[in-house]
Write a protein that binds this DNA or RNA. Structure first.
Lengths: 227, 227
DNA sequence: TTCCTCAGTTAACAAATGATTAAAAAGGGG
DNA sequence: CCCCTTTTTAATCATTTGTTAACTGAGGAA
């Protein structure tokens, strides 16, 4: 099953170049040349990855990106920003809007392919199963709900992502570093102590009085989800 | 250590035939003849592979399979569906529920054995090299747990690293110097007596009353891990 | 064999490291 | 601008670590 790449770009020459190359790589490709339409199409088609021009008529790439990242249903579609400007400032702004990667025009097709591959690899396993259970924990990725012993639990977005990550590899110990990379994202810097705080909140939320706590602390190593 | 095969099947004649053959192959075998009980037992015993009848009283094989595949804790136990019907449609349905293989009754024991072997081989390596064993010691680098005779032992970080290092080359004698370099790090200075202290703590943790101690002192040379 | 010496063992403790927690500050969105 | 979530900060708590010093026991010399 090949991945579906969506291109939001108004320069026809670039579109055809990209399309040609991506189809040769075996991806299903569709595109749109104006921002408003792009957003509509993306929500309709739910592609596996988006290549987005920084500047677009009607609705800028930045706007689309922000819009997508706000919506739970689309916020884990990886977005690669394409831009003509190579300035550091824009790069930061791009990441800031939630873009997952950033490529400046003119770009090498080879590099772009590599980045696409890497992002797809990273996001694939997320689509493994929509409902995952581990002992008496159940998490529904579609409705973004979590249950413990069939009772619903409310979690903040970060706690949800954290638990979602833990549940993919229960019992495995992750360092704060690894958690930051996988839950927060590769190019985001926050204090590693922040992880502790979220671990605490997650613990508080999923724990049941007089029961063995589900999250284990491994001193000088990290945390893990235990049964 | 032999693999544990669980049989969920209500026809006694088939069960005894399977049991006889599988035990001859060296597997540990247990079984249940009704669906509800089977599910309970599987969750309890966590076998390495399941042979499951398509139709079962109480809870059908399909249901059990679906149930298991949803739960992270059990979803990589391979399941072989046993069925009387040889129709293609059922075969697809079986795979659809998450079964890993499919055998129609009557089946050749030889073929079944081959399939079991292949599935076990496939599921084993997932957890192999990150778990190291030496005699009755087992150390799991992923979950950061240590076991002696299948009983868990708690170690401090340094003791863990120390044991982890020893187990890479059992029976080899290391000087305090070497231990400091490899466990503590190249450019860290601590008294060499400190090694003794940690050796002691490690010994205390992993030793069993009235048993030959696992760590040998080699006077004026160092220490080694012995069987 | 006895005694002496030296290396290894052990226990106790102080210092350091790492985790938890609460509370304040900083963002972000509606 | 207000509310909610995230992040930072700092105090506190718990565990681990390294050190010291007294103790023990093996092995060699007399």
């Amino acid at each position: 099953m090949s991945a579906h790449v969506f291109i939001a770009e108004d320069e026809a020459s670039i579109v055809s170049l990209l399309k040609y190359n991506l189809e040769k790589e075996g991806y299903k490709v569709s595109h749109s040349e104006n921002g408003e339409d792009a957003l509509k199409q993306i929500k309709l088609k739910q592609p596996d990855l988006i290549l987005m021009d920084w500047m677009l008529p009607e609705l800028s790439g930045v706007e689309i990106c922000k819009n997508l990242k706000k919506d739970n249903k689309f916020n884990d579609i990886p977005v690669i920003m394409l831009t003509a400007k190579g300035e550091e400032e824009d790069k930061l702004k791009a990441f800031d809007t939630g873009a997952d990667d950033y490529v400046t025009k003119p770009f090498s097709q080879k590099e772009l392919n590599a980045r696409i591959k890497s992002l797809l690899r990273r996001s694939k396993p997320q689509s493994s199963s929509d409902i995952v259970e581990f002992t008496d924990l159940k998490i529904d990725r579609i409705t973004k709900r979590v249950y413990r012993k069939d009772k619903e639990i409310t979690l903040g977005p970060t706690e949800f992502k954290l638990l979602d990550f833990f549940i993919k590899n229960p019992k495995r110990v992750y360092s704060r570093e690894q958690l930051l990379n996988n839950v927060w994202g590769e190019n985001i810097y926050v204090e590693s102590r922040t992880v502790d705080v979220h671990i605490r909140r997650l613990r508080q939320a999923i724990n049941i009085q007089n029961t063995k706590p589900l999250i284990r602390t491994v001193r000088s190593a990290g945390y893990s989800l235990e049964s």
